[in-house]
Design a protein around this nucleic acid. Sequence first.
DNA 1: ATAGAGATTGCCT
DNA 2: GGCAATCTCTATA
Length: 195
Amino acid sequence: MARVRPLPRSFFARPPEVVAPELLGVVLLHGARGGRIIEVEAYGDHDDPASHAHRGRTARNSSMFGPPGHLYVYRSYGIHWCANVVAHQEGRAGAVLVRALAPERDVEAMHEARGRPRRPVDVANGPGKLCQALGIGGEHDGADLCDASSPVRLVVDGTDVAAPPLVGPRIGISRAADEPLRFSVPGDPHRSRPW
DNA sequence: ATAGAGATTGCCT
DNA sequence: GGCAATCTCTATA
């Protein structure tokens, strides 16, 4: 396998809809566990009615307004955790929701974290599922994804993914539901649902 | 103060 | 396909 390297901070200092498709194929790691990003969604600033940042800064979404290249973790439906990559231009807010991973490293531990027998394809094919598989929770909110010493981080290893990405509307939202801000690797069985 | 919706998931029929 | 689980925030009073 090619040598891995972190992404530079400048990679994340661009609009989330620009960063999102480029995160496909990037590896998300927590300790020894890791998987390749297969599906993402972009969420913007006050101008995006579906974004947590739409109504301004709160205790929950504070990380969306912080420095790019960090993690934004929030609780979904009071039960699950969802992981986002903070991405925005100077003075703005925004993030990219990681919706699905293809498990690659320490896959055994990811299965154990999910509990019960699972089909391999179901281990990380959803935003809540991948956080459970990797062991990502609220304590990781704000983690620096560019820092090699951070518990949660992003790396690239030179592996190519199919391009161009598949583009479609975001899932599970009611506002701005027609915007083409969801991106995935065409044909990958680890996506969160059929296209 | 209270009610309702939400970037989800798993188990039920 | 229906529905419960139960945290955070917004709207309304």
